[in-house]
Design a protein around this nucleic acid. Structure first.
Length: 249
DNA sequence: CTGCAGTCCTGGTGGC
DNA sequence: TGCCACCAGGACTGCA
């Protein structure tokens, strides 16, 4: 993800738009980082953490459009680069965020931060028992359960629709009627979806045509049965599903 | 506790 | 063809 950001000395931190910062000033961020290295990168759900030598971390929440970009010497920051960390070896690490929904923070302790935000286990890292425990007993529409970052961290609106499509579950199904077999199938599908998507650099234009994602949109048709997709608001979010392939319970 | 609306922001889309 | 209004997306706040 942020491969290359570690083990290089930070010599400059530039913030293109201060609104991306949360709870820290440009001055404080730059002052803390200058002369230090990032020693490791962690990810939890939609956030990445660049661990600073000697303690603390830079927390990056990707929002919907945030992307990490590593630049080799001589490469210029792309448009919408909100924060640029420049290293002594002339490479740099950039946080792009066109829609400005992301956040950059300075954290004393990552685990403490995760606990304070009440985030659930990471959706991609969760094994089946963890996944099952997280989902079990949740009320409300299953789509809302999947979107709840306090249940599992990392599933956004588009991926929630995708995993429900691939498991043939109606997004409005009450969480209480999702059984152990559904849990198993959701878990397997989610891993496959995230791994495939990450392998394609999360480019939605590059995912398989058999997925729901390329067909989201007004006149979209189901890639499996070719019937018209249903659209509506579920759990407060725009939702696409196929009434035939995801039968109501 | 739960769920809903409103808010932030801007590139892309739909409609005219 | 060109312009503009509107919408989506994540997470927080405030209200019922």
């Amino acid at each position: 993800m942020a491969a290359g950001a570690t083990d290089r000395v930070v010599i400059r931190v530039e913030v293109g738009d201060g609104r991306i910062l949360d709870g820290v000033t440009v001055r404080k961020l730059a002052g803390t980082l200058t002369g230090k290295q990032f020693v490791d990168v962690r990810r939890h759900g939609k956030q990445a953490f660049l661990l600073i030598e000697g303690g603390g971390a830079v927390g990056i929440h990707f929002g919907m459009s945030g992307r990490p970009v590593f630049l080799e010497e001589g490469e210029s920051p792309p448009p919408h680069s909100r924060v640029v960390f420049s290293f002594a070896d002339r490479t740099s690490f950039v946080f792009r965020c066109p829609r400005m929904f992301g956040k950059v923070r300075l954290l004393a302790d990552v685990d403490q931060f995760l606990a304070s935000r009440r985030l659930g286990p990471d959706a991609l890292a969760a094994d089946l028992p963890t996944f099952r425990t997280a989902l079990d007993g949740r009320r409300g529409a299953v789509k809302g359960v999947l979107l709840n970052q306090g249940v599992l961290a990392g599933i956004g609106n588009v991926y929630a629709d995708e995993v429900l499509f691939q498991t043939g579950i109606d997004p409005r199904t009450p969480g209480s009627s999702i059984d152990a077999e559904d849990h198993r199938r959701l878990h397997r599908a989610l891993k496959r979806i995230f791994r495939t998507s990450l392998a394609r650099d999360t480019d939605w234009a590059a995912v398989p045509a058999t997925w729901l994602i390329p067909h989201r949109g007004r006149k979209g048709r189901c890639p499996r049965c070719h019937g018209p997709l249903d659209t509506g608001t579920v759990a407060g979010r725009t939702t696409f599903w196929c009434r035939a392939c995801q039968p109501a319970q």
